[in-house]
Design a protein around this nucleic acid. Structure first.
Lengths: 203, 203
DNA sequence: TTCACTATTGGACGTACGCGCAATAGAGTT
DNA sequence: AACTCTATTGCGCGTACGTCCAATAGTGAA
């Protein structure tokens, strides 16, 4: 098999296993079995298991981020882009990705590489939000507020609520979580209550 | 050594190790070395390692919750009690405890026992907050709002912001995180901006 | 057809894990 | 002083991990 394809297959197999068992519980033998090959093959392509898992985490996180970016691009107004950003969190399909984040945050405290990557990606998410807020202030859709604070608050509220939805299903209804998160930033940006929810409907 | 004391010593040793390495990375041999005893001893007191770790998690989580309850009791007004609740999150001494929570949320997705315990404790934190909010509405200090939503929003905002502080030091200043979280609930409860921060100073 | 090259195999190696168990030690009772 | 009971030891068992490596298969170039 073509080396590039094989490399990709290995990453995909590792991702599938990690989705089921968690990144830190994913083993070389698991990945080999998932592919139907021998375990030695993995080390022919990846120097270590840690490196493979790092690639997997990066791939999952980047995919999520770029998918959200794409969904935001089609919106025509800052409010619309903000709604697109929020919509990503309400989608049950993203629960698996969020589980990766829960694992990363847990691991970050003790693994330098994970911490740095996790931190950088979180900052990207916050900056994506900051950008939209800045645009909205410029167009006058949002009231003039401290951009950095508003972005971190919105992201953290989304993370905190989604955390409950994903880690403890049944404790908060998914719809409520998104609605509550939207109401928080509506307040900060001077949007009328429900404005974001309406914009999410349209998209 | 007295069996009850020994049991407690084991839990304490396990807690010390888990604080350093994480709950899921804590081994029987680690705990034995921490105590300066043999590894077989642990199994004389605990049927399984999982059971010991469950006790450790419970102990840490309960201690945190009851400490916060105590700190709230001395406050005389709902606003004061709310400030005491928030103060717990700003304390760097609690970072270790919060790391336990990060581990728990990560583990909850794949371990039924952890999920149930984690969920129940999170609900207790939310109810503690709901209670104070209800009191504040009764006294007229807070504006009449949806209690459940306000409490989940406040708790989630605190969790989300603290998550960044603990998992990614340097990305958000600790003081800002608490201030931002306070501003979020001030909005929901109709408190003047800075009211909670002032009340936290007084305590 | 022969030759080089590499993708791939399959198992060995050292390590670490949870757990169980026979042996020991030490304290309290008779 | 003899006995009982249990806290404690120390090691062995089976398993699983990441890693490594000699052997093999398969493919494209000469």
């Amino acid at each position: 098999m073509d080396p590039n394809v094989r490399r990709q297959k290995i990453v995909e197999a590792a991702q599938a296993v990690a989705t089921r068992k968690g990144l830190s519980a994913t083993t070389v033998r698991d990945v080999a079995e998932e592919m139907g090959t021998s375990s030695g093959l993995i080390h022919h392509y990846f120097a270590s298991m840690d490196q493979l898992l790092a690639v997997v985490f990066d791939k999952v996180a980047e995919a999520d981020l770029s998918a959200t970016r794409k969904r935001m691009e089609v919106a025509t107004s800052p409010t619309g882009r903000l709604a697109a950003y929020f919509a990503a969190w309400g989608d049950p399909d993203n629960d698996e990705t969020f589980q990766f984040w829960l694992d990363a945050w847990s691991e970050a405290g003790r693994n330098d590489a994970v911490r740095e990557r996790s931190r950088d990606l979180n900052i990207e998410w916050q900056e994506l939000l900051s950008e939209v807020i800045r645009q909205g202030i410029e167009t006058g859709e949002f009231s003039d507020t401290e951009v950095d604070a508003a972005a971190w608050k919105a992201l953290s509220l989304l993370d905190g609520l989604t955390l409950q939805v994903v880690a403890h299903p049944t404790v908060i209804e998914r719809g409520k979580a998104v609605k509550w998160a939207a109401s928080g930033i509506e307040n900060d940006l001077g949007l009328p209550p429900g404005a974001l929810a309406d914009a999410m409907q349209d998209a």
